[in-house]
Amino acid sequence: MSSYQAYVVRENDGAYLGKVEKVDSWDLNEGEVRVKVEYSSLNYKDALSASGNKGVTRKYPHVPGIDAAGIVAKSKSPGFYVGDMVIVTSYDLGMSHPGGFAEYIQVPDAWVVATPKGLTSLEAMIHGTAGFTAALSVYRLIQNGQTPEMGPIVVTGALGGVGSIACRILDKLNFEVIAASSEGMGADEMKSLGASAQITKAETDDQSGRPMLKTSWAGAIDVVGGNTLTTLLKGCKPLGNVTTCGNIGSGDLAMTVYPFILRGVSLLGVDSQNCPMNIREEIWNLLANQWKIDFSDHLIHETELDGLDNYIQLMLTKKSRGRVVVKL
């Protein structure tokens, strides 16, 4: 194999354009594996990388795609062999390192997870980094003592990648789910998410300035940050947990310490990019077994490399719903 197809983003007079091109392969180094990609998925970081965000990707031309799943095609690693099914997400894939929007990726074996039995490459990429982050958020809640008996969990961005999967996992584990979204959703969408109720954007964006609010939920999974995260913390019941994994709203957190010291609320950070391998493997095994969920077709969109542009624009304009998987 001397070359393969990839979605390459190039910079031209300050504009960033992506198209499918032939790219040259390179020699495999010791401790690396070459993976024939079957599926990838589109995440917000990919959309930023494809649009020239230097906070994600500094050097162009570049192949985005922070997720990939497929078959080991060549290996110089003692832990992986030709034919092994594997998953690669996070680390530097698709950021500075050529990513999963390509027929092949070549990565250090320290980034690679053996695909658990019971999970296909397609299912793995329906999850992707978004699903992994959702599962890691639920994992953090449970590890810190959250139980269904404590009350409902609010999930922000409930129609997005992380939020929609977090809702389904929580529902499978018998938690009551309150879906929060900037857009209203119908009964069918709520049912597909496993949510029993929904709340408006205004209800997660308190402007009163009060240090604490009436308790309305037992915990939350937040993907927004900023005042949304502040509101969730101020309205959380005693000993509840709130996870944070995104800052699309803001990276600032303007609040007092009162919810933490008067109600014992915990704020739990979720870092999927550099998650330790033992936890990473545990999460993927949960998604393949006890936490395996059935997805509704209308929230899963499939494209090939030449259809990526449309979905990237939808994501950048915050009009994307559900998950976008990329078939190679």
Rank of each mutant, 00 (worst) to 15 (best):
V82W: 02
Q146W: 02
V324I: 13
F260G: 12
G226W: 03
L42A: 03
K54Q: 12
A180I: 01
S196H: 00
S182V: 10
G65I: 04
M212K: 13
A47L: 00
N274H: 15
K19A: 10
A180Y: 01
V177G: 02
T256R: 08
G65Q: 05
R34C: 09
M95H: 10
L239M: 14
G225V: 04
E123T: 15
V270F: 06
V56P: 03
V37H: 01
A288L: 03
T200A: 12
G249P: 10
Y60N: 13
K54V: 12
A158P: 01
A6G: 06
Y60R: 05
G184L: 06
Y104K: 00
Y4R: 05
M277N: 10
V82T: 15
A69G: 11
G157K: 07
W291D: 08
V86G: 01
V72S: 00
W111A: 04
S41I: 00
N174S: 12
K318W: 12
T147Q: 08
Q198Y: 06
A288S: 14
K191H: 06
P61W: 08
W284V: 03
K59F: 15
Q143M: 10
A114F: 04
G264L: 14
T256G: 09
L314P: 03
L48I: 09
P108D: 07
L287V: 11
T230H: 10
K45M: 08
N241K: 13
A158N: 04
S320E: 04
G31I: 06
V88R: 01
G131W: 00
P211C: 11
I142A: 00
N278V: 13
G269L: 10
L268C: 12
L268Q: 14
I312M: 05
D206Y: 07
T200Y: 13
N278C: 05
N289K: 11
H97C: 14
P276M: 10
N174Q: 06
D109Y: 06
A158M: 07
I221G: 01
A15N: 12
G83A: 02
P259W: 02
V155N: 12
D171W: 03
I87P: 00
E176R: 06
Y7H: 10
E203W: 07
D24E: 14
V265E: 00
G131P: 02
L159R: 00
V242A: 02
M315N: 11
V326A: 07
G246C: 11
I165Y: 12
V72W: 02
Q146I: 07
N144V: 05
S182C: 09
G184Y: 11
A73Q: 11
A50I: 02
N278R: 12
Y4W: 05
S182R: 15
Y311C: 08
C245F: 09
G151S: 08
F101D: 01
S181W: 02
L299R: 08
E281S: 14
G226R: 07
D222C: 13
G118R: 04
T204F: 05
M212S: 11
L17A: 08
V72Y: 01
V37D: 00
M125F: 13
Y104C: 03
